[in-house]
């Protein structure tokens, strides 16, 4: 896929996700050739689709496809997925579940403990999703501080808020670098999801503050992204879990792996 085709695909996906979510979006993605993209150009398709899910606030059951692709099992199933705290969930494909109390729009339901599944690809995909969610929150906060005036000045002119948004931005840029630079290594994927989860939660904190009262209302979109970030962070291991796992690896090996090189 060249740059122009990629750009076109991004536009199409963004438009599709802006108008549909859940099973409807699953169907649209199937029509757009999701299965073929995943088979032929996973390196392009996964980052793009998952980041755009975050940016648009839509959701689809595509995480199942990523995990199944890695296990090599038959497509169409809904594997049990580990959640933080020793819990397990599944991502219903028919949109029927409404079991996620924090983010009820997600068809995520708790299930009995499942078997071990390979997690690297799923973590990387969720990392891109969290990155997109973080960028969506930052875009909302940025618009708000430019538009709203207090004390006769735009909020964007106050350094305290500028630095908060700069902090959110730096975290997201760092996470994108980690997601981009990763190879096929499991540890790279683990660190990538940890970085993305942490960056999304940092963005949530600063953007919530910059948006003030309006960001706390149900009518403003921010809370949807905040809740999405919290739920996705726990899936396949939270930033806290994964950071600790990374530390355990250091203690086991006694040396810091250099995972990217020039």
């Amino acid at each position: 896929m060249d740059a122009e085709e990629r750009e076109l695909l991004e536009q199409t996906l963004r438009k599709t996700m802006s108008g549909a979510s859940g099973p409807v979006l699953d169907a649209s993605l199937a029509d757009l050739g999701w299965a073929e993209m995943l088979a032929e150009e996973p390196g392009t398709a996964i980052p793009l689709v998952f980041r755009l899910l975050g940016e648009t606030g839509a959701h689809a059951s595509v995480l199942n496809d990523i995990v199944l692709r890695e296990t090599g099992g038959p497509p169409g199933r809904t594997p049990a997925l580990p959640y933080t705290g020793g819990l397990w969930v599944e991502w219903a494909r028919d949109g029927s579940a409404d079991d996620c109390p924090l983010d009820p729009s997600l068809p995520l339901r708790r299930v009995a403990a499942g078997g071990a599944v390979p997690l690297a690809e799923g973590r990387r995909a969720l990392g891109w999703w969290l990155l997109g969610t973080g960028r969506a929150m930052l875009a909302l906060a940025r618009r708000h501080v430019l538009d709203r005036h207090q004390f006769g000045r735009p909020l964007a002119s106050f350094q305290a808020l500028r630095h908060r948004l700069a902090e959110a931005y730096v975290g997201l840029e760092g996470a994108e670098a980690v997601l981009t630079a990763t190879g096929d290594d499991d540890t790279c994927a683990l660190l990538a999801k940890a970085a993305a989860g942490r960056a999304a939660l940092t963005a949530a904190r600063h953007c919530q503050q910059a948006l003030g009262g309006i960001g706390f209302t149900a009518e403003h979109d921010l809370h949807r992204h905040v809740k999405r970030a919290l739920v996705l962070d726990g899936l396949l291991g939270s930033a806290r879990d994964l950071t600790r796992e990374a530390g355990s690896l250091l203690l086991r090996e006694g040396r810091t792996p250099r995972l990217v090189d020039l």
Binding site: E173, G174, A175, A177, V178, T180, A181, T182, L191, A194, A195, R198, R240, L242, T243, R244, E245, A246, G247, S248, L250, L251, T256, R258, L259, V260
Partner: peptide, 18 residues
């Protein structure tokens, strides 16, 4: 302290990737 060591590594790895 795995959490603290992991966090230190995550920051370094992030700087390195960037």
């Amino acid at each position: 302290d795995a959490g603290a060591l992991g966090a230190a590594w995550l920051d370094l790895h992030t700087a390195r990737c960037r």
